[in-house]
Amino acid sequence: MTNPDRLTRIEKVLDYIHEHLDEPIHVLNLAEKSCWSRWQFQRVFGQATGLTVAQYIRELRLSNAAELLLSSKDRHVDIAIQCGFDSEISFSRAFKQMFNCTPGHYRQQGKRYGLRTPLQYRKPHTAQIDTPKAFTQIRLESRDDFQLHGINDWIRGPFSSAPDFIERVPRLWKQLEKQAHHIDSHTRPIGVVDTNDHPQHPDQMRYWVGYVNQPNKHFDSMQIPAQEYAVIPVHGKVVAIEQAVEWFIYQWLPDSNYLGVQGYELEIYEPNYDPDSSHSYMEYWLPIKPR
């Protein structure tokens, strides 16, 4: 089980990192604040977060820089210094490694993608098997419009007065699997939850399962518009999805710089996803916009 004292010490270190991102941060100093040796601290930090200390600090600094590129007209060199880099050259090199483009091109595109947000501790649900990665990091991504081809049904979600998604959603996935013999085996299906208002179905949402840009006469089609998303990583059995989304809505979103919006929520699963395995992984993409 997770050691509460260990998590508290990691949280204190994370708070320090978040408050001093624009200053030099040394692993040895962080280890002293955590009361572990340098080796012990790096090991515990990696187990709890899935990241190295240096990687985490670098990604947060570059994410802050990417946000400033989109939200301000500051010069690249000023953004570099503001985000803790020694020079514009070192900043540009690190930025390209993370985002696969120059700061100038990122600004020109005008879209948020690949941004990392500060890690937050998410207390496991009592029914959830404990995981060594006790902290969750939300990623911000933009996705162009695409066409989904598949099957769909009306469902009542977890916040409905009479939820039925637990029965209806697996039924749709099984139906899609039966019809997928004509789809390339390397093409992964996704789930899409249409949360827009539908007056004729006031207590329901339309749930889709299908393939991106794979037209077929056996499937219905729907156009998903371009959208900005908060991406929630979900480790574990399928029940962990609902728990992760609730944590995001009730805890992460209110304290963030973003608002949730109605639209199309995406469920993107790793290959061979097993809903009954504690080792499974998927991502839940929720539409957002800056406040």
Results as ranks from 00 to 15, higher is better:
Asp22Tyr: 07
Leu115His: 13
Ser280Tyr: 06
Gly46Gln: 05
Pro4His: 05
Ala80Glu: 03
His198Met: 03
Pro225Gly: 04
Trp154Ala: 03
Pro287Glu: 04
Met222Asp: 00
Trp173Asp: 03
Leu286Thr: 14
Lys111Asp: 08
Asp197Arg: 15
Thr52His: 03
Val193Asn: 09
Cys101Met: 15
Lys178Gly: 03
His125Val: 10
Pro4Ile: 12
Glu59Leu: 02
His182Trp: 07
Asp255Thr: 14
Gly150Gln: 02
Arg156Phe: 01
Phe219Ile: 13
Phe165His: 12
Leu14Trp: 11
Phe146Cys: 08
Ile151Arg: 13
Ala80Lys: 07
Asn213Pro: 00
Met98Val: 15
Gln109Ile: 09
Gly210Ala: 09
Gln251His: 14
Ala80Ile: 11
Lys133Ser: 05
Ile241Pro: 00
Thr52Val: 04
Gln137Ser: 15
Pro215Val: 10
Pro118Cys: 09
Ser92Asn: 09
His201Val: 12
Ile166Tyr: 02
Trp173Leu: 03
Gln214Ala: 10
Ser92Gln: 08
Val261Trp: 08
Gly150Val: 04
Gly50Ser: 07
Trp173His: 06
His198Tyr: 04
Val212His: 04
Pro254Lys: 13
Leu68Glu: 10
Pro170Gln: 08
Arg156Ala: 07
Arg116Gly: 00
Asn64Phe: 08
Ile232Ser: 03
Pro124Asp: 10
Tyr56Ile: 02
Gln179Asn: 10
Pro24Trp: 12
Gln108His: 11
